[in-house]
Amino acid sequence: MIGYLNLILRLAIWFLLTANFSVANIIIGVAVAFLLPGSPKSRAALKDWLRALGKILIAIPQAYVEAFEIIFRPHTQEEVTLERVPPRRTPGLIFLDIFLITFTPKTIVLKYREDGWYEVHRVRRRKT
């Protein structure tokens, strides 16, 4: 089941990069998704994938709220924080984590550290 989720993630990235849904591009995308090497040493649990996808669904309305907050109440404070990567993360789940953090307008991942941390840039309102 996890293999299918990796395949779907690869195809989604392919379609986001190309923005082309022609038959030829779909065939090329499927070929690229199958030809990319996988990581046989670490297996992700289905519940980790479902939890990550659930967080992304929650992040969509949160992104709209944060966008309106930035428009109507400017945020002038910036900070860089470290967030721990959850344990047993495959490269696909790490990508989804980074996507989740970067999707919201107030945060962006600056760097993924190999020692298990994300460097996250945040904007905040000025404290009065």
Rank of each mutant, 00 (worst) to 15 (best):
P105M: 00
R125E: 14
Y118K: 08
I58V: 15
R43H: 11
I70A: 00
L35T: 13
V120K: 03
I13E: 12
D97M: 10
F72E: 01
I94K: 06
L17G: 12
A31W: 07
P91D: 05
L53H: 03
I101S: 03
L5W: 07
A24V: 12
P40Q: 01
L7P: 05
H121V: 07
W49D: 01
L93W: 02
I56W: 07
V23T: 12
L11Q: 04
G92S: 15
L82N: 08
R113G: 11
F99M: 13
N6R: 08
W117G: 07
G92P: 07
I101H: 08
F72W: 06
L36T: 14
A24L: 10
V85Q: 12
I8C: 12
L16S: 14
A44E: 09
L50I: 13
Q62C: 10
I98V: 15
V109K: 02
L36C: 09
I101K: 03
L11M: 12
T81K: 07
K41P: 06
T107P: 00
A52Q: 06
L5S: 04
T90Y: 03
F72Q: 00
T104R: 05
K55G: 15
Y4I: 15
F21N: 09
R73Q: 10
I98P: 05
G38W: 06
R113I: 09
Y118N: 03
V123E: 01
P105D: 01
P105N: 01
F68R: 15
D115W: 09
L82W: 05
L93G: 04
R88W: 06
Y4D: 08
L50F: 15
L7C: 11
